[in-house]
Design a protein around this nucleic acid. Sequence first.
DNA 1: GCGTTCTTGTCCATATTATGGACAGAACCA
DNA 2: TGGTTCTGTCCATAATATGGACAAGAACGC
Lengths: 253, 253
Amino acid sequence: MEPRQGAQAIRRALAVLRILAAGREDGVPLAEVVRTTGLTRPTVHRIIHVLIEEGIVERHERTSRYAIGNQVPELALARPRPSRLLIAANPSLQRASAAIGDTLFLTVRTGNDTLCVDRRIGIYPIQVLSIEVGARRPLGVSSAGVAILAAMPAQEARKIVAANEKRFEAYRTDVATVLGEVTAARRLGYGMREIGLVQGTKSISTWIKTPDGQPAAAMTVSAVRTRLGPRREQEVAEILLREARIIEQAIGG
Amino acid sequence: MEPRQGAQAIRRALAVLRILAAGREDGVPLAEVVRTTGLTRPTVHRIIHVLIEEGIVERHERTSRYAIGNQVPELALARPRPSRLLIAANPSLQRASAAIGDTLFLTVRTGNDTLCVDRRIGIYPIQVLSIEVGARRPLGVSSAGVAILAAMPAQEARKIVAANEKRFEAYRTDVATVLGEVTAARRLGYGMREIGLVQGTKSISTWIKTPDGQPAAAMTVSAVRTRLGPRREQEVAEILLREARIIEQAIGG
DNA sequence: GCGTTCTTGTCCATATTATGGACAGAACCA
DNA sequence: TGGTTCTGTCCATAATATGGACAAGAACGC
């Protein structure tokens, strides 16, 4: 079905907001927003400054970077309860982290992005804290994003990857690489990044689907590479797959 | 200065979102959004359904009411840190609640609304929990809103009250009543509601200003009426005023 | 059970808004 | 110092967003 007409400006504003959200508290320069949204500079400038007037965006004086403003968390207070996924995943994150010893992450799909919504640090003396809660990236950049893409129909995954193309350069990847990883993840049954977001690390992600079959989230282990040789990778993947199924059951009701 | 042109649709979408935020998890029917924003039904319908497609709004199947969607808290994760006001106010809320024995609320101004961002329950056996964190209302409806309006230039207060006119009916008040309360609050130096948001209660609010002199927040005590006779009202007001000044100092740096 | 009222939902001719090419000034860097 | 890159702005015009009119369904009252 065709998307609803008559609100192009609203969609554009949201596209801008999602780019600013990816920049978190550091903010994003105007040129980067122009580049990644594909909109023209006057258009981005106008959208951003209206959002500033409305308190949705703020401009950092010293750096001229734009970031999410205080009214977004204020609007979010209208929806304070954690999602069913977050609640359902809690014991699995705990169990998996204890069993594996490394850091566990819960990441959700939000539009064409991934967003880290929970993190559980393990007990092994070396922990790879590659991202934090709130970290947002284009789908395809992390092993979680790759896993989520792998779990959806191939054509839909290609559309999303194409939409994110302009943003991959900033994360030192590209469409061909991402699609290759998605294909490999389909084969393996989970996503994996030999080269994690951090040098010398490796991460493994399993997708989590909602009751209607949509891949909506992923659970990820990140560790130093030496801790994830072929045999241990298999063990970790099995633990993650089992807990992902448990989460899916819990969400189903 | 004239507000920036070229993004009326974005402002309208935000106006709709703020109405939905006021409805919190209960949601708001379409007709109510039409009435309070003053927009036409096709316009509101279109805006809401684009926001639904974008995950910003969701529609409750059973009640046909619209509410804030899951992507708003997800965007808010880009700005996780509590504001300086919230941090600065924490010890004052604690002290005032202990000294007074009733519930203390911290409320901020957000656009033409007030939003409760913190609440501290007192030790007296009867507590008036008139609102919760996340409760959003038009400026002018609560004693906190009245206090904030009283602390700003009269012309600016009148503009805000005029903008909120259509929404007052739902809270059983009107422009004349609100302006009367604002005038009284200017005289008293604090806002007060003999008839609180809850029958048989009374509330007292003192404004809190930012370093640039803008009234941005208020601290409120709510109690059963019998606990706030004239003399005790004076004592409570003095405690609130003192703590408000402390908070203003802490924000100032 | 029927009539009335109220609500949500949709269409599309047209009014109005949003756009972006062109230009200017500031900041940065070699 | 000059070149490059960035932010910011203008306004003629292209394109979008609008809302009056209408339809259908739900809720309510007698």
